[in-house]
């Protein structure tokens, strides 16, 4: 099976510091995967490794079955929006589109203009004069007009107002209906991603903490509320991601495949956002690091 993105023991070191370490991921084609992590967790490093802007210090990274070490063959199939948006400030939007057309064999001119119109972007305006949010939109249009098979988006919604954010999200999801598309999109805001992603990759500084489908995340994580004296036995049989104790009561967010049978525990479902926040916070409390979990399920299509 050819994965959209496959990494094995991938690592990138800057001097003495590992920006990414032991990263093993298998993202099936057709996924919309959210890359979540706090600032400096390694999201951008992973994306730059994927598109060939960085070379790994160790391990391998393949996109659509081709090594990112030699990105030339890959580039026509990849759409990438960097955090800096990487646009020419002295070009107008119109010139930028012409450049896109000349540089990309698979460029879809009609699609590009339709998107620019839909987003009401001023074609005559210099890119350097646009707001941060408008530049983000132009960058996304450039990436989509290439009709890529896989899109890597680094914080695409930063500096974008809520209405435009909604419009961009719709455009992305519509694209995923119209053509086969895999998306890897990073953000540190869970609510931006929770309805659009079917998989999540949670990074805490340099480590993959969790990588699985949103469906599994929902099934495997529970909140348990019960007496403090029974907490130890729960912690023995289930993986505690986060726990707090007040007086005689314990509240724990656990990951488990086993049913909780002890009736003293009240079991609740947990929202995606709470699960993600628990993982992000958990690296500060010294829990045993979890084995990175691979995407096991295929995307249903």
């Amino acid at each position: 099976m050819i994965y959209a993105l496959e990494t094995n023991q991938l690592g990138k070191r800057y001097g003495k510091r590992w920006a990414l370490h032991n990263c093993t991921l298998h993202i099936p084609q057709g996924c919309i995967a959210g890359l979540i992590g706090l600032n400096g967790a390694g999201k951008t490093t992973l994306l730059h490794l994927a598109v060939g802007l960085l070379k790994p210090t160790e391990g391998t990274i393949d996109v659509l079955g081709t090594s990112s070490r030699n990105p030339a063959a890959l580039l026509p199939h990849i759409g990438f929006v960097s955090q800096e948006r990487s646009l020419y400030r002295h070009f107008t939007i119109g010139d930028t589109l012409i450049m896109g057309k000349k540089l990309n064999p698979s460029w879809d001119e009609t699609h590009a203009h339709r998107l620019i119109e839909r987003l009401k972007l001023p074609c005559q305006q210099l890119v350097g004069r646009l707001s941060g949010g408008q530049q983000a939109q132009v960058a996304l249009v450039m990436a989509l007009a290439k009709r890529p098979e896989i899109l890597f988006l680094d914080e695409p919604f930063a500096h974008v107002d809520p209405l435009v954010k909604r419009e961009l999200t719709k455009i992305l999801m519509e694209t995923a209906v119209e053509q086969p598309l895999t998306v890897v999109v990073s953000s540190h805001i869970v609510s931006d991603l929770e309805n659009i992603c079917d998989h999540f990759i949670i990074l805490t500084p340099s480590q993959v903490k969790l990588a699985e489908s949103t469906e599994q995340m929902g099934e495997l994580h529970k909140r348990l509320i019960g007496p403090r004296e029974s907490f130890e036995s729960i912690a023995r049989s289930h993986t505690v991601i986060q726990a707090s104790h007040t007086g005689r009561q314990s509240i724990a967010l656990v990951r488990t495949r086993l049913p909780v049978t002890d009736p003293v525990w009240q079991i609740e479902d947990v929202s995606l956002e709470e699960i993600v926040l628990a993982y992000l916070a958990s690296h500060e409390n010294a829990h045993t690091p979890l084995q990175p979990v691979q995407f096991m399920k295929e995307v249903i299509r």
Binding site: T169, K170, M173, A176, V177, N195, D198, R301
Partner: peptide, 16 residues
């Protein structure tokens, strides 16, 4: 699916 996706900005797989 396309209409739902344009309406509420949701992952198409969810609608499927």
């Amino acid at each position: 699916v396309r209409e739902v996706v344009s309406q509420i900005a949701i992952n198409p797989n969810t609608v499927f």
